[in-house]
Simulated scan of single mutants.
Amino acid sequence: MTTTSVLPDIGIDLREGYADVGDQSLHYVEAGDGPLLVLLHGFPEFWFGWRKQIAPLAEAGFRVVAPDTRGYNLSSKPEGFEAYGVDLLAADIRDLIGGLGAGSAHLVGHDWGGSIAWTVAMNHPEVVERLAILNAAHPRRLSEGLHHPNQLRKSWYFFFFAVPGLPEDVVHLRDWHFFRHFLSEAQPPYTDEEIERYVEAWSQPGASSGMINYYRASVRQSQKEAVAKLRPLAAETLVIWGERDSYLGPDLAEPSRDDVPNLDRVERLPEASHWVHHDEAERVNELLIDFFAQPGKGS
């Protein structure tokens, strides 16, 4: 189903639609034509987090689709943390790719979108051509990292969000100050107009619980069982990592070659924060275009 509404000017005409994924619906925007390239946002963003990537990637010859993942903005927001397990989130993206009429796609994920992208590539390798990850640790690396005090301190919010009820009350205070804080390390800072678009997305009915439920589902999952399910990725993979990340240590950037045997490389950007696609958008765009334009599977 395709709809038309007032969308922000990001330098290219956008098309807007909804895709049925199982019993849920994902809202998305798209631009361009060519091989399908899906962009998965992180917390607390929505499709608009890719505003600096959509036009350059579309102009480079890709059909770029940026969905709001389950629980965010205009996508479905089922109740209960059980509906936000990463395997369900990954199945949404598999179904989205199929619903868009493609057998497979290039996949880019940042933060939670990166966690989903890792899982899509593991659980549904047939739908992933090439994979690019921005500041999102491979699940094994993240599990290992959470055993170390330094990373536990950085990841304190994981456990705060796991508390029933309280986080929803806190994040609304002072005009969404808590969520605004997560975006505050980006350079240049997000503009007031950009922040207001985030506030509009956060204010959608059920969105704050949907976003927080990602963390609740993750914390309640047995890490031993989650790690036991991991399998090597088939997809060629590029990792881009902003090293001034306040939430994930730089040691988490490098996945094991046993887990990612087709790792192209880890590209570290020393001056970029967790919001690497904002801080160094031009460099990130160059890296993505070069990586996805290489001849290979599906070319």
Rank of each mutant, 00 (worst) to 15 (best):
R216G: 02
H106L: 13
W156E: 01
H172P: 03
H110K: 07
V128T: 13
P232C: 00
G206W: 00
D92T: 11
Y215G: 03
H177P: 03
V171G: 02
L233F: 04
F161V: 00
S203K: 03
R197C: 06
W118T: 15
V120K: 12
Q223S: 09
A217Q: 13
D169P: 05
I133G: 08
W176P: 00
I212S: 05
A137P: 05
N123S: 14
D111N: 14
N123G: 10
M122Q: 10
R140P: 06
A162I: 03
E200G: 13
A121S: 13
S155L: 00
P125H: 08
L166H: 07
S208H: 05
Q204L: 13
R231K: 10
S209E: 09
F159S: 04
A235S: 10
Q187A: 03
L152K: 04
L146S: 05
A117N: 14
A137N: 05
D175C: 10
A235Q: 06
E126A: 15
G98N: 10
Y215V: 02
L183H: 08
S209Y: 07
G145W: 08
H147S: 08
L146W: 12
R197I: 12
R197G: 06
R174D: 15
E185V: 04
S209P: 05
V108H: 07
H110C: 13
F159A: 05
W156Y: 10
F159L: 07
M211Q: 12
H106K: 07
W156A: 02
I116N: 14
D95E: 14
K224S: 01
V108C: 09
A186G: 01
V219H: 01
E126M: 15
A234D: 15
N123C: 13
S208A: 10
I116G: 09
P167Y: 05
L96Q: 04
G99A: 12
L173A: 14
D111W: 12
E196W: 00
E200Q: 13
A228V: 00
L134T: 01
P164N: 09
P188K: 06
D92R: 12
G98L: 11
R140L: 11
E236A: 14
V227P: 05
A228Y: 00
F182K: 08
G114C: 01
T237L: 01
R141S: 09
S209F: 02
R140W: 09
K229E: 00
